[in-house]
Design a binder for these strands. Structure first.
Lengths: 315, 315
DNA sequence: GCAGATCTTGCTCATATGAGCAGCGGATTA
DNA sequence: TAATCCGCTGCTCATATGAGCAAGATCTGC
């Protein structure tokens, strides 16, 4: 395109998009035919001079969703827009809202929903509308009695999701990580606990998040791990944790001994699941999101625009 | 609008603007009629959820230009977009480009063009295309022999503008500010110098910029004023200078004694001019731009989006 | 300098979109 | 409870826009 045509296309675009003139009127103003105006506008679009953004907390980026599905083979991908986001809290809320929307619209409605716990899941439970489902049974899939801060939040999340969905909840009465393997095996062998794990294993859908491996990990907050222990895991290649289990960028368990002491369904059960919805957003979770997606831990990813971009760039 | 309709309008907007679907197709997807889709899109626009931006160095903001004309009574206003601007240099170049474009398209073509000097005018002279006019006489309207840095830049600007416009140039052979009033009067009374001033007074159009009043003023760089002297002017209410003369926010001369020693046409000549084009952009020039416009020093303002916004908000 | 190739232009025609209007339905009030 | 009103819906019709094509303009290589 010549320089003069480029300038004309910008003038045309101004009149068309800012001034709401018709292509015919623009033609009169710029002394060109209306067909040329149409072509100039098409060129301006093709050259990327026209940027259209949908600014709304619930806006999604369908183009990125498609790219993400294609690049990763995910069954579904939801990408929330970051346009107009003011802070990280805002972004977290948007992501949770999208997850709640997705869950509400999920067909077939899962009879049994296996969930993890954490800040993200808590946010989702808040965004869900009462009546989002008609009798879902919610079951925890990993241990989650918080050792120090806000005890019972994990349970509250499950309760809220179940109640709003008009169904029952089943808690996993165990810490996330036990100190000794023997203790873990002992708890697991308890009949009632085993029943919960079994129910978790048979869930028709899973909803979970993931944590990044750094000092801000929920495991540190909850008192299961010290910052030093997390550092050690990072040194071994950990990028984050999924349902309490730390994995490297290839999706492999980083520390088998620690994993033995971690209570919850094994990752293989997520990998085999027909519907496993991962909700992972925010700038610090790019690496763990990538690992989750590429190692097949989820069939559906709900994330934000920036994370999606990083994933597409890396995949 | 109900909450559900708002959400629908966002979904519709995504499909329309990102996925290039027709309203009819969107209707099928969302299970609503195509007329409802049209209405939802109209609502999304009306609510400001759809943001369209033209990203190009030569993009202008016609809407702001109109508002600016209405708010200030300017004959014309050119507002360059800041979308995609990377640094202040970029913005300066855009503004200069717009000024060059405006000057090239100005009808009737001025026979005699009075110009000031400075970084902005220099940039404009660079952006002008050879042959932008067919015989303009360019005359300097204020003194401008730089005392230390880059001597001759003021002259070079006038020469360049005249040569590219196929015309003659007339320089004003005097410093910007004299040390003593007597010296100024002596120079002014010289027959040849008086002739230049007279030519400047009779110019058919003026093109000038303005400087902010702070340590970064061109007068400090050029050695005419010390930072302390500028501070003193600021204390007296100065917001900046126009053709070398410092004015307050009402457009009044701040320091009459200093002004007596300043060489160039008086501001009243600019105020009486039929065509006086001021080119003032950048975050530090909001105050001086406001003063220039509101005190009637220009009939045309060429500026950037942010400055225009500030002007409209303040006017 | 000329023949062929390619690109641009102005058109016809099909389609997409917006304006305007009648009818329906749910809310409001006497 | 009935009358009235307001706003939403689905339509018709006019207009705006984009696809496709033939003719003209411009470029390229010999």
């Amino acid at each position: 395109m010549t320089d003069i045509d480029e300038l004309l296309s910008i003038r045309a675009a101004e009149l068309y998009y800012e001034e709401d003139k018709t292509q015919d009127e623009i033609g009169t103003i710029l002394r060109i035919t209306r067909w040329k105006v149409g072509r100039l506008l098409a060129q301006a679009k093709a050259n990327g001079f026209i940027r259209i953004e949908i600014v709304h907390p619930r806006a999604r980026r369908l183009g990125l969703e498609r790219q993400l599905r294609r690049a990763t083979g995910l069954v579904d991908a939801i990408v929330v827009s970051t346009a107009g986001v003011v802070d990280e809290l805002d972004l977290q809320k948007r992501t949770a809202q999208a997850a709640a929307d997705y869950l509400s619209a999920l067909r077939p409605v899962p009879r049994t929903l296996g969930i993890s716990w954490g800040r993200t899941l808590h946010d989702i439970s808040e965004q869900l509308k009462p009546g989002w489902a008609n009798g879902v049974n919610v079951v925890q899939i990993n241990g989650g009695v918080s050792l120090n801060a806000r005890p019972g939040t994990a349970a509250a999340t499950a309760v809220s999701i179940a109640q709003k969905g008009g169904g029952q909840f089943t808690l996993l009465p165990s810490p996330a990580i036990l100190e000794r393997v023997e203790t873990k095996l002992a708890i697991a062998s308890d009949r009632s606990v085993a029943a919960v794990l079994e129910m978790g294993a048979g869930a028709s859908a899973y909803l979970f998040s993931a944590g990044q491996a750094d000092a801000g990990s929920a495991h540190v907050d909850s008192g299961y791990l010290t910052p030093d222990q997390v550092d050690e895991l990072v040194r071994k290649g950990a990028v984050g944790d999924v349902v309490g289990r730390f994995i490297d960028s290839a999706g492999q368990i980083v520390d088998p001994a620690l994993d033995e002491r971690t209570f919850g369904i094994p990752l293989e059960q997520l990998r085999r699941a027909k519907t496993a919805v991962a909700v992972i957003g925010g700038p610090r979770k790019h690496a763990i999101a990538r690992s989750v997606v590429l190692s097949g831990l989820c069939t559906v990813l709900i994330t934000d625009e920036d994370t999606a971009q990083a994933l597409i760039g890396a995949a």
